[in-house]
Design a protein around this nucleic acid. Sequence first.
DNA 1: TTGTAAGCGTTATCAG
DNA 2: CTGATAACGCTTACAA
Lengths: 348, 348
Amino acid sequence: MTGGSYVRLEDVARHAGVSLATASRVLQGSSHRGRPEYRAKVMASAAELGYIPNPHARALAANTSDTIGLVIHDVRDPYFALIAGGAIDVATARGQFVTMACTYRDPELEARYIANLRAQRVRAIILAGSAFVDAATSKAMTTELESYYNAGGSVVSITRHRLPGDCLVVGNRSGAADLARRLVDLGHTSFALLAGTTRLVTIRDRVAGFKKGLAESGIEVDPAFEVSGTFDHDGGLRATQQLLASGRLPTCIFASNDVMALGALTALRRAGVDVPGEVSVAGFGDVVMARDFVPTLSTVHLPLEEMGAHAMELALRDERGSSPRKVTINGEVVLRESTGPAASRRRR
Amino acid sequence: MTGGSYVRLEDVARHAGVSLATASRVLQGSSHRGRPEYRAKVMASAAELGYIPNPHARALAANTSDTIGLVIHDVRDPYFALIAGGAIDVATARGQFVTMACTYRDPELEARYIANLRAQRVRAIILAGSAFVDAATSKAMTTELESYYNAGGSVVSITRHRLPGDCLVVGNRSGAADLARRLVDLGHTSFALLAGTTRLVTIRDRVAGFKKGLAESGIEVDPAFEVSGTFDHDGGLRATQQLLASGRLPTCIFASNDVMALGALTALRRAGVDVPGEVSVAGFGDVVMARDFVPTLSTVHLPLEEMGAHAMELALRDERGSSPRKVTINGEVVLRESTGPAASRRRR
DNA sequence: TTGTAAGCGTTATCAG
DNA sequence: CTGATAACGCTTACAA
């Protein structure tokens, strides 16, 4: 059908018997300008010839492009895979390309990649993944992003309110606090916190929110029960093993994300500890597979896919908003099998 | 640091006191041409000014680009997330961009997207995800890809040996046959096959291989135990429920991929059927989480991440291979908790 | 409205 | 080996 070579705008113009400029205007202008008969002719020719504009030429001439940069922590992490999926779908539907990078929370890698996206003049940059508490860590990246933004680029971040542009603010604090309250209602009184790195603001917020929720009932977390590690499956596994090794268990373990919770579940199972019989476990995020964990995981549901889609929509809106938008996303507590009434209570 | 505006090659040239052409040559030529003193000057100026080449201009002039198109079924599916992750990592390390699309096995969407990648003159296209048995379905896509390939583009596919270019051929048949043998060794005699859509060649191959493995021991699959559905979690769940509803169970269930197997596990658990006590379950692929399923999943391990990395390396090799390479990837059976000795045998 | 022509930032050709 | 200069395909003033 389409031959080996390319159809250029010039070919379309000639075929339609109009000038290059006219063809260009017709093809890009969603507006109704152009004499109807010319419009029709050009459209027909373009379709017949199978014309696809050269995005590079377009980018060069118009100083914009139709690709969006998506910077995430790791595609392999289901949390981000969901966000990416949602984002990619709306981009594809709108004829935009998505170029994606995984930066593994390495600020330097992030900075470098963003510089490249900027040079590529991507239409927008979406950043998903927590920032570090220490703002200086990502200074280079922030600077880069600001130049991009100031030059007219769109920036949408998820949970990075300090960055320029729009932001999807996840209610980490409130979600975790809600979860804590529900857990207390179940009768739990002693909690362990698998915090991951407390240098990530997401974790810090979730932990802070959780503690606040507990505090309302006068419950404090034993410092010995606050164990950190990496913010992933292994981190959850190791932290739990550490807990297990200490010989003392709380009645409930809160992992600051679902994947860590899964690690915790695995560690507990290996050690022969019954969940929720002996300990309850809860996570945060509600990754799709949380429903398939054994036991199914209690967690704070976040509409991850929609968040990705929403972020992409913000990134794609015609006029970059006069004022940056902050959209709050609130999670909803979902109690499933992994949390039960407190063990102590049960024994009564 | 970097100002708001852009540094162009011209600026670097002026700063270094050489011509545009010289600067261009120095900056792109990995070769040692250019007077050393000029080379040094240009490099220094570029570094000092923070020069980043404009990829669009480069693409337009040189008719190539430094982005690779990655077309997969769905990022949310851990199987593909792993492949994508492996691919993205090597691309990033080599300073290449990856633009990714999910096509959900929709041939039309695939064709459209590939046409766009082609127009964008991406440096290579990587295609992961099974083809349909019926070649006509993806005729348009194939044509598009061939034009791209014939025009000098690199194509690397995973499990699509009919396509032009290099191919990572997954030993679906042999892997499934191996698995079948091991399962027979365990004493199993009756098997159910959760096939997914038999229109996908991957599934067809896995099913055929599995049957072949069984046939070596004179075992046949009861047609009533061969149930199809979608090639995902839900497909596995539903197929298993269907099986359950029929009132008759085999001693072992083979799901043609891990995610389906997870669905099966969930259905079984909900129905109160013990695995592997009453039925054994096996999958294919060895998604990371297979180790966290309860029970941990027996499956055929595929080095998914390495496959993605390998595919990207093939895509990036300097000269497109004179002859297309076919690399065979063989899976390895991993027996974990989800398969045990056949239930009937146990009861003796 | 439509056409002409001047860029956009690089690469590549061709003289010097 | 180096330096002008013409592409590359498209957008967009500017002119008609």
